[in-house]
Nucleic acid binder design. Sequence first.
RNA 1: GCGUCGGUGGCAGAGCGGUCAAAUGCUCGAGACUGUAAAUCUCGCGCCCAUAGGGCUACGCAGGUUCGAAUCCUGCCCGGCGCA
Length: 297
Amino acid sequence: MNRQQKIIAIVGPTSSGKSDLAVQLAKQIGGEVISADSRQVYRGLDIGSGKVTKKEMAGIRHHLLDVARPSAVFTADDFKRQAKKAIEDISKRGKIPIIAGGTGFWFETLLATESLPPVPPDKKLRVQLAKQETMELFAELKKLDPIRAKAIDCHNRPRLIRAIEICRQLGTVPRKKTNRRQYDVLWLGLLVPKEILAQKIKDRLKRRLARGLIAEVRRLQAQGVSWRRLYDLGLEYRYVSLHLRGQLSKEKMTVTLEQAIIKYAKRQMTWFKREKQINWLNQFKQADLLVTDWLND
RNA sequence: GCGUCGGUGGCAGAGCGGUCAAAUGCUCGAGACUGUAAAUCUCGCGCCCAUAGGGCUACGCAGGUUCGAAUCCUGCCCGGCGCA
């Protein structure tokens, strides 16, 4: 039996300091960082997505930043594929991959599931299905795959559409297979008290605005990213673009955005709470011990 | 001072005699998550016991009318507007 690839996974809500910890650990143990952030993969989404700057990287190599065009969706499967490649790459160089990010689903996809159903998105079908009532979609899924229908959230249109898409291709939705043994993962989670996190989020938003967040969104739009797409990208991109379109005053935008980011942080936490292997840390110091122990294991 | 409109749950805002613990939206809380995942979606949100359900206190304050009042009447307090 060959030894499993060692990987460090750093998770936590937005603004909790994942990027810093990742760089710090990478320096200490000889690692490279893989970003697991569904918005930082896009070129041009810098300030709003909180992408690390060259300076913050401090010479540590980062993967999966700026690998996609903002107008095309970069999927969980794309992430999985490229992240796997990066992991191989890094280990060939004798270094340790450190995956840091806030996208829970992507972590699960990469580290804990066997594979996603091998059905690429079918744009035409999706457009067509989007015209149907939610109830109809659910009824169709029920016919195609009663088991999946039973478990699915019957109000969640995107999920219903995807499930139908899979059924049309494979007959039914394959059962989800978990596989946690591909890698030897040390899970580190950054825990920040609610009030402190909220304050950090507000402060950071202020800094982002000062650094030119609004101009960034305007630039993206000018470069051909549609308003619709900016809206779908969420948070900063959603509310700043609404402001640019005159639908939100700057003050209102700021307040709404603060609330939205705080809510997002909460949603992230409900995802991470499910992952029982996470070692929750209050301060970076605690990470050192865990990491050295685990490396010597 | 007179007239007038209004004071409803964390906020905004419906309700204008019974079916009202009170629509709806937001905030807030909990949660889901099989290729959009910063997306999308669900549930809860007066208090108390509780599975269903039941009890209690509530719609500025104090009285009154009524079998029954957030809803009608009187007085008071507070706010907007108009006239002085």
